[in-house]
Write a protein that binds this DNA or RNA. Sequence first.
DNA 1: AATAGACCTTGAACGACGTTCAGTTTGGTG
DNA 2: CACCAAACTGAACGTCGTTCAAGGTCTATT
Lengths: 205, 205
Amino acid sequence: MNDTSKPESKPDLRTRLIDAAEFEIAEKGLAGLKARDVTGRAGCALGAIYNAVADLDELVQRVNSRTLVRLGAALAPASETSAPEAAMLTLADAYAVFALNNRRLWSALFEHRLPEGVGMPDWHRQDHEVLIARIGGPLIALRPDLPAEVLRLRVRTLFGAVHGVVHLALQGRLVGLPEAALRQEVAALVTALVAGARQLAEPEA
Amino acid sequence: MNDTSKPESKPDLRTRLIDAAEFEIAEKGLAGLKARDVTGRAGCALGAIYNAVADLDELVQRVNSRTLVRLGAALAPASETSAPEAAMLTLADAYAVFALNNRRLWSALFEHRLPEGVGMPDWHRQDHEVLIARIGGPLIALRPDLPAEVLRLRVRTLFGAVHGVVHLALQGRLVGLPEAALRQEVAALVTALVAGARQLAEPEA
DNA sequence: AATAGACCTTGAACGACGTTCAGTTTGGTG
DNA sequence: CACCAAACTGAACGTCGTTCAAGGTCTATT
């Protein structure tokens, strides 16, 4: 009993279930995730899911958290580039490459919807915040003239723009659109954005 | 028998079913679309769906086609603006406003997935092409230096960028993010993109 | 008018799904 | 050993999309 209020000790079956769910999503996509397949792979009874997590939605969110962490790790080297322009280009490219190399798990991040009224739990929301913060660094360096509040919004906008391009490319045609073309388009987008942002920040001089 | 091969004469029940499906999606979202609710609203038996359309997926695609047409109509006045920069700003703003005013139907356009292997039917793919073409006009005027093939890709990229921002804003928090803020962010994105694109197109002079 | 044949329409039934829960097993504590 | 709470089981439930044999409706032909 080393915890005060929330028992955090669910080491084994819970992990096996998340492992199994991650495998299933990576293999068949989010829509192909079935409770019976997951429990079958994890080697437990059907109902055991509901001792480990609240429902399948939480299981998906646990998998998504892992994916976000891996995505963050894939973006880490890029965010340490010194020059803002180069950093943003490298970040966006790393993002596109990660999406291409983890199609189904990456898609699950954005395909998953929880049932209308309920909001995202905090532990999962924070995983997103971490990612946004990592992207934010170079943009802050690029536009030091903007107040922090506007920058927070602008980071989300920048992320949304890159994300939208990758999203559209992957759902439009998995095959047919070569990896190089997508990376090139993302690069063109970020280049234009950076050029525009710099120009707007320095009207003259 | 006025057709040669494909019987196109299904006037009434089919339309009522699409009407009902459109209403249900607008009311409860794509995930809330149930075969029994649709047939109940359309006033017919459960199985009647499968005489009018192949399955629920096609019913969703029929609704999505309507939405695309309405979206195209909402974008039409903006695309006729003469100056490319102003046209692109107006287009993007009209897109954001349409998404805000038709949240669930607009979301259905991108939430819907067909089962893994099968591709989008041509009649539905063309609805997308029309939309892309409408957006493409101003971009072509802005970057006459680029070859047609690159421009086709670039239009998709531009669309993806704007779409991604709106998408992220709407799924992140329906309430909490005011309409004005989203429109402002979209405007900032397009402004920066246009400034960057123009700058890259005219290195000097 | 009567018959035939092709379509549409019905609603009960089916299998797959997520979730529940009464019963059983397990593991630690007095 | 006895006890209890927690974890675990798998049959059962309600809901879902889809199917299909049965009956109805309409039009063309005799």
